[in-house]
């Protein structure tokens, strides 16, 4: 499947190139309101395949809100309203035809706090394939669980205790379990909302390595508070400020040579 980027409206304030060739996601003039609060103000951005897009910005700038637009998790929040076009492979995810359950199977999500289900490790990974009917029999399900855990780098640690509760793992292992659970349904995009903020540096390094490996198969969007992390794992970076998308560009360039004043102030640590 291929899709062209949607046309970019005239006169946008964002610095840098918001478009990419053949994007997975193409977002145009996205606005989000929480009741009266205007949380996201006219954001235009494309998300490329097999690449990590990092979203950075000070707290409350709307980066998590924007991330949650991409799999319509904002639907679950009372009083949240999303406007604008968000096209996944050229098809608007807010269209009536687009089933939200199917969308979330295509766009997986890893949350800030590791949140494995209070079930066994095996059941955690098998859950997605099971509800979506991806495995014809137990053998196939076993294969999916096995390969997902391997790809999440967790197999060696848990292969002897697949029947133990997922909540008995350490924080870093739990987060990798959540990643394994997400890739078990073979999504096209993986959204990560500050996946390492609750983890120690060693667990963080493992997750970052994992993100780098997963990039070969998936488009990944990661929200992070750590600029070092953004620099380490991402190829493209978007800087949000008070609901505005201030600057988008290649990570190397953003961090070495930011073009917008706000971006520069943030990455040089003048606020944030």
């Amino acid at each position: 499947m291929s899709s062209a980027a949607l046309p970019v409206p005239q006169g946008i304030k964002t610095v840098g190139t918001v478009t990419v060739a053949e994007p997975v996601f193409s977002c145009r003039d996205v606005n989000v309101y929480y009741g009266d609060k205007h949380a996201i103000k006219g954001v235009n951005i494309d998300i490329a395949r097999k690449q990590v897009l990092a979203m950075i910005g000070p707290s409350g700038c709307g980066k998590s809100t924007f991330l949650r637009c991409l799999n319509r998790m904002n639907d679950t929040i009372l009083g949240a309203r999303v406007e604008g076009q968000i096209a996944l492979e050229g098809q608007d995810i807010h269209e009536k035809r687009q089933d939200v359950v199917q969308l979330r199977a295509r766009v997986g999500m890893v949350f800030q706090k590791p949140n494995p289900f209070p079930k066994s490790i095996y059941e955690n990974v098998a859950y997605g394939p099971r509800i979506h009917g991806l495995a014809a029999d137990r053998g196939e399900l076993d294969d999916i669980v096995n390969s997902s855990l391997r790809r999440a780098g967790l197999w060696e640690e848990v292969k002897d205790r697949l029947n133990q509760p997922g909540t008995s793992l350490s924080g870093g292992q739990q987060q990798r379990l959540c990643i394994a659970r997400t890739i078990a349904v073979n999504p096209e995009v993986i959204l990560m909302d500050e996946p390492c903020s609750a983890l120690d540096p060693i667990a963080t390094a493992r997750i970052e390595d994992l993100i780098d490996e997963l990039r070969e198969s998936y488009a990944i969007c990661i929200v992070t508070h750590s600029m070092q992390q953004a620099a380490r794992v991402s190829q493209r970076t978007a800087y949000f400020h008070l609901g505005d998308l201030v600057e988008v560009g290649e990570t190397d360039k953003i961090f070495t040579n930011p073009r917008a004043k706000l971006t520069e102030d943030y990455i040089t640590g003048r606020f944030g």
Binding site: N71, M73, T76, V101, Q102, L103, R104, A105, G108, M109, F111, K113, N115, P116, F117, P118, Y127, G128, I131, H132, C178, R181, T182, V185
Partner: peptide, 27 residues
């Protein structure tokens, strides 16, 4: 029931009923 469990289930593509039946109700 912690909202993180609901988010996890919905994020996996569970329908509302599946979220309730598989995760929220047992807890």
């Amino acid at each position: 029931v912690p909202p993180s469990i609901r988010e996890a289930a919905l994020g996996m593509g569970a329908s509302r009923l599946q979220m309730v039946g598989h995760h929220v109700l047992p807890l």
